[in-house]
Design a protein around this nucleic acid. Structure first.
Ligand SMILES: NC(=O)c1ccc[n+]([C@@H]2O[C@H](COP(=O)([O-])OP(=O)(O)OC[C@H]3O[C@@H](n4cnc5c(N)ncnc54)[C@H](O)[C@@H]3O)[C@@H](O)[C@H]2O)c1
Ligand SMILES: NC(=O)c1ccc[n+]([C@@H]2O[C@H](COP(=O)([O-])OP(=O)(O)OC[C@H]3O[C@@H](n4cnc5c(N)ncnc54)[C@H](O)[C@@H]3O)[C@@H](O)[C@H]2O)c1
Lengths: 224, 224
DNA sequence: AACTTTATGTGAAATGCTTCACAAATCGAG
DNA sequence: CTCGATTTGTGAAGCATTTCACATAAAGTT
């Protein structure tokens, strides 16, 4: 029992646990749409192909949200997880590099719905600067630092070619941005206090290639 | 010493190790371009922000590729890793759902360069069927199973809306495809012998949101 | 109110992964 | 050819994460 102090207290929570919270959130959104009131760790585990013990343990790091004999209240748990993940608010996001991937991300409405609001676009291509994507005008990369700062951008999504990505990091960091999601296949060097995540699609294809090539053992769910 | 039997023997290799092989491959490609002949585990580790011990341990699962006192031969190690990952050959890939993300992936030349050859496109939108993307004509989803099978497709990239993704799995599986990379935010149910990986961009944004919200502890490199 | 059923929350055990630390091997200098 | 410097390859130790298993609690039933 004994409720851990506060939601989001700075305990040592593993990356996998956070990723699974995203999965629980997604599953709960689904259950909510289907008008479920409560859900057991067993059901929740089944939807995302995990184990009930895993679900309970993950949630227990943040508090005690269920009712013994009954399960978890769908709507309430969803809200609690939103609070833990910090997606119960809007984040101001800028996108840098409005090419193939960048354009796809701007058009994706689900991000805004989950609290990630793309409010600034940047490129260095004269043909793109000034153009309108979903109501946002593409800014010149020359003014990156100042415009990020003026727009109070908190997160940046980087979808430029890898060759220029590192070069842009200084301006991004100086502007006060604290988190970067990087799509360029390169290991960016950023100061200690900046959160960086990489999205590497080639890596997943290569994993499949490895599995097929080596008859990788009885498939388990990806480890999150 | 004692060289482990064969490259790609069915040992118990962790997911993280495979992901790191992708990173080593990328680093070695870079070093090769810069005309390095050999590289130490220390240098390699530095490029991808890992530890030398980790690099050596990972490689040791597959054989013994280095020279004590010297390091690893760049070109040779790169080739060995390509063989381990199965990217020393061409994979025949089909892409299903030629929307925002799908179009971006078709245009991406690096995939082909790494052995992933997109040779078939599918959609159910009459305006898209028959249209030409980078030299490939979009096929009607109605003929999915047959065309996948006739084209000897080995992997499928799924970029349709989540609502239809599960519905397409049967045809994909029946066609003989053995691996699926899924971009739809849904947990697909596939038979035991099919390899499935999910690409979930929202998850990474949510991780950043969590980190910012909770002042997550001294950032470590994502765990692979 | 007692009894049965169900399902949470959590220490402890089991498993898995990373780091340590050092013997073994190679290189280059003298 | 020997010695000192370097760096691999790898058991074993150290951590981290997952799973187990059960006491605990709530709800429904008789
Ligand atoms: N397209 C894909 O499917 C795919 C897949 C995996 C990884 N990636 C990676 O994602 C990134 C983007 O890929 P893409 O296909 O969208 O490329 P792209 O060339 O279509 O887009 C890159 C954009 O960045 C802009 N740009 C270039 N230099 C810039 C600078 N200094 N400042 C601001 N903007 C600049 C370009 O004008 C262009 O609009 C690349 O790093 C690529 O390796 C792409
Ligand atoms: N766009 C993004 O940035 C983004 C980000 C994260 C996740 N996703 C996910 O990726 C997937 C694709 O996103 P998108 O933005 O490209 O969507 P989109 O609507 O632009 O593209 C979907 C494509 O699938 C096609 N399609 C629909 N039903 C089909 C069917 N039965 N058979 C074949 N094709 C069919 C549509 O005609 C369309 O071309 C979605 O599941 C989305 O949730 C997208």
């Amino acid at each position: 029992m004994s409720t851990p102090s506060k939601i989001g207290s700075p305990k040592k929570i593993s990356e996998s646990t956070i990723h699974r919270l995203s999965l629980y959130y997604r599953a709960l959104s689904l259950l909510e749409k289907e008008n479920y009131d409560t859900v057991s760790s067993k059901q929740l585990a089944k939807i995302e192909r995990l184990t009930p013990a895993q679900v309970r343990k993950d949630l227990s790091f943040f508090g005690s949200f269920g009712t013994r004999g009954l399960g978890y209240p769908v709507n309430e748990l969803k809200q609690k997880i939103a609070t833990i993940l910090g997606i119960d608010r809007q984040w101001r996001v800028a996108l840098i590099g409005i090419g193939n991937i960048g354009s796809a991300l701007v058009s994706y409405k689900e991000f805004a719905r989950q609290g990630f609001q793309i409010v600034k676009l940047f490129d260095n291509d004269q043909r793109k600067i000034g153009s309108n994507h979903k109501g946002i005008i593409v800014s010149d990369i020359k003014n990156l630092e100042q415009e990020l700062s003026e727009a109070s951008i908190e997160m940046v999504v980087l979808t430029t070619p890898p060759t220029v990505a590192q070069y842009l990091v200084d301006d991004i960091v100086n502007s006060g941005v604290k988190a970067i999601l990087n799509f360029a296949p390169i290991n960016l060097k950023v100061p200690e206090h900046i959160y960086l995540r990489n999205e590497n699609m080639a890596m997943e294809l290569e994993y499949l290639s490895f599995a097929l090539t080596n008859n990788a053992p009885p498939r388990r769910q990806p480890s999150y």
